[in-house]
Amino acid sequence: MLDLKSKFQRVMLIDDNTIDLYITSKIITKNNFGDKIDKYTSAIKALTFLNENQVNFNELPQIIFVDIYMPQMSGFEFMLEYDKLSADLKKYCKVYIISSSIDKNDIKRANDDLNIVAFQVKTITKDFLESISSEQK
């Protein structure tokens, strides 16, 4: 009997591009990666949600995928604010930068941020999701 239970209860996607949000959520669903997918087109709104639910772990995503280039608040600006959240939240939520950028400075900046697990060029793949699942066991 195959176990079709998703690997994570909640996954948060933050990307101003609704097509990318749709494609990424479909890949996550198809690969049984997340039961519930919280989609945000605004990093500010996603941050507000995280801030309001810092102690409510049932509401928090275990995995956060965030784009770099977005209006109002970029992925890197989001990470500066994310760093101010509780240590328990940061231990529970694992952040991955998902970007169409291949700029070496962006990749270095992501790799230098202790709150970012990894940098992945869009679009996410089944292999990438499997690598996260095996890391989080």
Rank of each mutant, 00 (worst) to 15 (best):
T29W: 04
D88E: 14
K36V: 11
M1K: 11
I97P: 00
S101T: 13
A87N: 15
I14M: 03
M12N: 03
F65G: 00
M73Q: 11
A118K: 14
D106Q: 14
D83R: 10
D88Q: 13
T48V: 09
A43D: 00
V66W: 02
N51C: 15
S25F: 05
E135S: 13
F33A: 01
F78R: 05
Q54I: 06
M70E: 06
I102W: 07
E77M: 08
S131N: 14
K39W: 03
E59Y: 07
Q9R: 09
K45M: 08
L47W: 04
E135G: 15
E130G: 06
L89T: 01
N32M: 12
Y40D: 00
N58H: 12
S133C: 13
K122F: 02
N58G: 12
I14A: 10
Y82F: 12
F76W: 07
D35L: 14
K45T: 04
V11I: 10
S131M: 10
I37F: 00
Y92E: 11
V95E: 09
S101V: 07
G34Q: 05
A46L: 03
Y69C: 10
K7R: 10
S133L: 02
D112I: 04
D127L: 15
F76Y: 12
D103M: 10
S131H: 05
V66D: 02
F8V: 03
I63V: 15
Q54T: 08
I102D: 12
S100K: 11
K108T: 10
I19P: 00
I132R: 03
M1W: 06
T18N: 06
I132C: 01
A118V: 11
N17S: 07
F76M: 05
K104V: 08
V117Y: 06
R10A: 01
L85S: 10
S101K: 04
A46C: 12
L129C: 15
A110R: 03
P71K: 13
D20G: 06
T123Q: 11
D16S: 11
I97A: 07
L85A: 08
K104S: 13
L50Y: 04
Y82H: 01
D15M: 04
K26R: 15
K122Y: 05
F119E: 01
S101D: 08
K104D: 15
K137E: 13
D127M: 14
L85C: 12
N51S: 14
S99Q: 07
P71Q: 13
R10G: 04
